[in-house]
Computed example of a mutant assay.
Amino acid sequence: MAEVAYCVKCKEKREMKDAHQITMKNGKPALQGQCTVCGTTLNRILPAEKKVSS
C-alpha cells in the first residue's frame, strides 16, 4: 500500500515516493517523502504513540 499525503503544490492528495518515518521536533512521528508528480517534499503526521503508565 502506497503512502498518501496532501501536496500543497498540486492541491490534491498524492502518493509519496521514498517515504520514511521521521520524528518531529515535538516528538511526534511523521512520514516524509516526495510527490511523485512535482517532486515537492510531503509530510504526513502520524498518530502519537500511546504512553504506557506504570
Rank of each mutant, 00 (worst) to 15 (best):
K9L: 05
T23I: 12
C10F: 03
G33E: 03
C7K: 00
P47F: 03
K17D: 08
A2T: 11
S54W: 08
P29V: 04
L31F: 08
T41V: 07
T36H: 14
A48I: 03
C7S: 01
K17Y: 10
V37W: 00
H20W: 05
L42S: 06
K11G: 11
L31E: 07
T23F: 07
M16F: 04
P47C: 05
A30M: 10
V37F: 09
L42H: 02
S54M: 10
L46K: 09
R14F: 09
I22R: 08
I22C: 01
D18L: 06
E15K: 11
D18C: 01
I22Q: 05
K9S: 06
M24E: 08
E3H: 15
S53M: 04
T23M: 09
R14L: 06
Q21N: 05
G39N: 12
T23Y: 11
R14I: 02
E49R: 07
R14V: 06
V52R: 14
R44Q: 10
R44I: 09
G33Y: 01
I22K: 09
E15I: 10
G27D: 01
Q32F: 08
K28V: 10
C7H: 02
M24Q: 15
A2C: 04
Q32P: 10
M24F: 08
C10M: 07
C35Q: 00
K28I: 14
P29Y: 05
M1V: 02
K50I: 04
V37A: 02
L46R: 05
T41Q: 13
K51S: 02
H20Y: 13
A30S: 14
V8M: 10
R14G: 04
C10K: 00
T36Y: 14
T40P: 00
K28R: 14
L42Y: 12
E3D: 15
Q34S: 15
D18I: 00
Y6L: 12
P47V: 03
N26K: 12
L42E: 03
C38W: 09
V8I: 01
A30Y: 03
I45D: 14
V37R: 07
T41E: 12
A30C: 01
E49N: 05
C38R: 04
Y6S: 06
K28Y: 08
T40N: 11
P47A: 06
T23E: 08
A5S: 10
V8E: 15
T36N: 14
V4K: 06
K9H: 05
K25L: 13
N26I: 05
E12T: 09
Y6V: 07
L46Q: 08
N26E: 14
E3G: 05
V52Y: 09
A5N: 00
A5Q: 01
E12Y: 07
G33P: 09
